[in-house]
Design a protein around this nucleic acid. Structure first.
Length: 480
RNA sequence: CGGGGCGUAGCUCAGCCUGGUAGAGCGCAGCGUUCGGGACGCUGAGGUCGCAGGUUCAAAUCCUGUCGCCCCGACCA
């Protein structure tokens, strides 16, 4: 490849979709698998997932949630036990129908989600109020056949996620858990990935089919489309009844339990790529970056090399002692310019350049990936690096928040809604609560209710569609 | 599922119409010169032309079938 197409060849503004795919592939986060709709994670991509997983695991543990493991095959008889749930997933289930040449009678589903399997076991494990609450999280993959065009991380037929399943003795406690999880999701996504989210409830139409209600966090992407970042469901007794998840209370009366389920997927990585990337490639938030700083030594000849490398090594060790994930680019035969572009493509937050000039001045050039700013730091100021990384993390969230705000509009006039929806964005528009209006709006504009933000109840306005009294001001948007 | 396009080197593609030695650029390997924003020269490796049949003295090229992938229209994290 020549200079022109060594990096990202399209602009994020001109062809967002192509830009996204190129960043994923060229930054070496993932690659396509031999089977349509499936992707392979490469170490830099998987490392981001591991980082998120570690953060979530710590927060889950603090909340009394432990990890377990569930098998991938679920018999059809189990999957069909909760009818609405089953109907919702049926078109996209992969089925295993043979073992070798033998036909399997009760065919096996590759899990689209594990509620039915988990709760079959839960009903065995739970007998008494003393067994509650039961809170288990599962890191695994789910499989859902995607007929429509797929996109790495955003829509694939198999995706990495976590699914948490909790059981409680009271409705109140279960509902509290739903909110607690949503809160963990929100602060993790904002603090680690630097992506602002809007939390609230899904409409009845958009909720998880098996749930009493679904809480969600939604983000707006730079192309104006909404992306669901995670959901936390209150299941009520919708599953505990068919699966007989029952417990004897202190008064020795048997009750059906109250349940929750919740999940986030590697879609979060896709959101991170879209939210922060630019025309030079990926931009990683320091907290999840596999490498936080890369040192590029520069020298012309052996003498230069001998002068530069010991200093580079010294700096590397100092940074490592401060728990900075640092890498030295020792590749021979590549020009500094090539390396700069290469690391920018891969999104490493800080690039440190050390060459003969710097040795003379006792300083180094530090380039920030997120704003392409270059500063000079003396070798004695190396202690500032961790703080700079923290600042970058904060600046990235701030910038993403400003962008999201500028893409959020208050619109109560339907013609205006229709004319502006083409450009995308989050539209805060009053709604009467009726399904017909929600459906008509979707049909006529492609926009759906992404989230009804907490605290958006409002009876003082008129529904944007039917002009009757509003009950809330949901976020309408076109989605991924 | 309905409509269009494409399968030739690791990647992007030319060659096919009009059958006759399988090509280019980039990438890759070695050597040398380079090195502060995508350096250059030389040498070299790398191919069952998606697969299976057929026509022919001869098939990447023509015919038939088949498989796979990509793009556009109804569901989902």
């Amino acid at each position: 490849m020549g200079k022109e197409d060594a990096g990202i060849t399209v602009s994020k503004n001109d062809d967002f979709s192509e830009w996204y795919t190129q960043v994923v592939l060229k930054a070496k986060l993932a690659d396509y698998a031999p089977v349509k709709g499936l992707i392979v994670l490469r170490p830099d991509g998987y490392s981001i997932w591991e980082s998120l997983r570690n953060t979530f695991d710590k927060k889950f543990a603090r909340n009394g949630i432990r990890n377990g493991f569930l098998p991938i095959l679920i018999p059809e008889s189990l999957l069909g036990k909760e009818q609405k749930h089953f109907a919702g997933f049926n078109p996209e289930v992969f089925w295993v129908t043979h073992s070798g040449t033998n036909v399997i009678g009760d065919r096996l589903a590759l899990r689209p989600t594990s509620e039915t399997l988990a709760y079959t076991l839960y009903s065995k494990w739970i007998q008494s109020w003393r067994d509650l609450p039961l809170k288990i999280n599962f890191w695994n993959t789910a499989l859902r056949a995607e007929i429509k065009a797929t996109k790495p991380f955003l829509r694939t037929s198999e995706f990495l996620w976590q699914e948490g399943h909790t059981v409680h003795s009271t409705q109140e406690e279960a509902e509290k858990e739903v909110m607690k999880i949503l809160d963990i999701y929100k602060n993790t996504v904002e603090e680690e990935l630097a992506i602002p989210v809007t939390t609230g409830k899904k409409s009845n139409k958009e909720k998880f089919v098996g749930a009493v209600y679904t809480t969600t966090m939604e983000s707006i992407m730079p192309d104006g489309k909404a992306l669901q970042m995670g959901t936390s469901h209150f299941l009520g007794q919708n599953f505990s009844k068919p699966f007989e998840v029952k417990f004897a209370d202190k008064d020795n009366v048997e009750h059906f339990a109250w349940q929750t389920s919740w999940g986030v997927s590697w879609r979060l990585i896709g959101a991170m790529i879209m939210a922060h990337g630019d025309d030079k490639g990926l931009v990683l938030p320091p907290k999840v970056a596999p490498m936080q700083a890369v040192i590029v030594p520069i020298y012309r000849n052996d003498e230069g090399k001998e002068a530069v490398l010991p200093k580079v090594e010294e700096i590397r060790k100092e940074l490592e002692s401060k728990d900075i994930r640092v890498h030295v680019d020792e590749r021979e035969g590549l020009s500094p310019g090539y390396k700069f572009n290469d690391w920018e493509l891969k999104g490493v937050p800080l690039r440190i350049e050390i060459g003969p000039k710097d040795i003379g001045k006792n300083s180094m050039v530090v380039a920030k990936r997120h704003n392409l700013e270059k500063i000079s730091l003396s070798f004695t100021e190396i202690g500032k690096i961790p703080r700079i990384l923290d600042e970058i993390q904060v600046e990235m969230l701030k910038k993403a928040r400003e962008e999201a705000e500028s893409n959020t509009l208050e619109i109560s006039d339907y013609p205006e809604f229709k004319s502006k929806i083409e450009e995308g964005g989050f539209f805060n528009s009053p709604w009467c609560g009726k399904l017909e209006c929600e459906e008509k709006i979707k049909e006529e504009t492609g926009a759906e209710i992404r989230v009804i933000p907490f605290g958006s109840e409002n009876a003082n306005q008129k529904c944007i569609y039917c002009k009757e009294q509003s009950i809330s001001v949901p976020v309408f948007a076109r989605g991924y």
